[in-house]
Amino acid sequence: MSRDPLDWAPGSEHGTGPDPEDDPAPLAARAAREKPVGRRVVLGMLGVGALGIAFGENVQNGISRLLSPLGGSGLASLVPGNGGFVLYTITAGYPAPPPHYRLTVSGMVQRPLNLTVDDLKALPATYLTHDFQCVTGWKVDNVHWTGVRLTDLAEHAGAHPKATAFEFASFDGLYTESLTMDQARQSGAIVAYSMLGGPVSQEHGGPIRLYVPGMFGYKSIKWLSNINLVEDFVPGYWEQNGYPINAWISGHPPTKSA
């Protein structure tokens, strides 16, 4: 290596050895050879991020299938897309049912209902096996559900012909949801007292919750305490907080409606 003209320090021994390692390149020469690797790393990550947004759904579905044996409980719930439920609540913790819990059916009905869990179980049951799809991206495949069809319950209570929508309230004191009569019919929504092969647990919204097949999970209100039949649809909790009123996962009702 030739003696560098920028060699500043008096008495420097730069440029005397043939081995470049014994002769650290002077600063200016080194600076000229520097490459903006940091910027490339950042731009590369932005590119990979954009690819992830476009194709991540497919990748995640593959990962979920691989991880499904873990069941998504405990530490496995740390792994994104583990195939398990993420148990949301909008209040502090998972609410316990009040003493003497009853599910009430009220509003535009001839016979308001005041049901215990056993009363509900005495009604004709519907069995479903269907995915649970959250609007935030996670999904649980093939969940077993048992309950009473919402439209059957409305009929049982003697719904007024002008009642075109359901209003649901939760005993967490905050969460509300709503379905039109048509949506209830098209989805085959059920008032569920059993899921995942057992009674609906407290964190899953027990003892009684709604399940709306084909719609995002926020429609399937947990800790259900009241079903009110009304004339007009009223947007629920998350719909008032920016979630779409149209909660069909596919964007529209199923074509082969019940």
């Binding site: 991020g49 992830g52 947004i53 476009a54 194709f55 991540g56 759904e57 990748v59 995640q60 740390l78 792994v79 994104p80 897309g81 609007v135 935030t136 991206g137 996670w138 779409p244 964007g251």
Partner: peptide
């Protein structure tokens, strides 16, 4: 994830995928 309305739904799932894994 917050302002997803103008975009295809699959982008939202993709964003969830990227956001969750990158967070980890």
């Amino acid at each position: 994830l917050r302002w997803y309305r103008p975009f295809p739904l699959s982008w939202r799932a993709g964003s969830t995928f990227v956001h969750n894994w990158l967070a980890l």
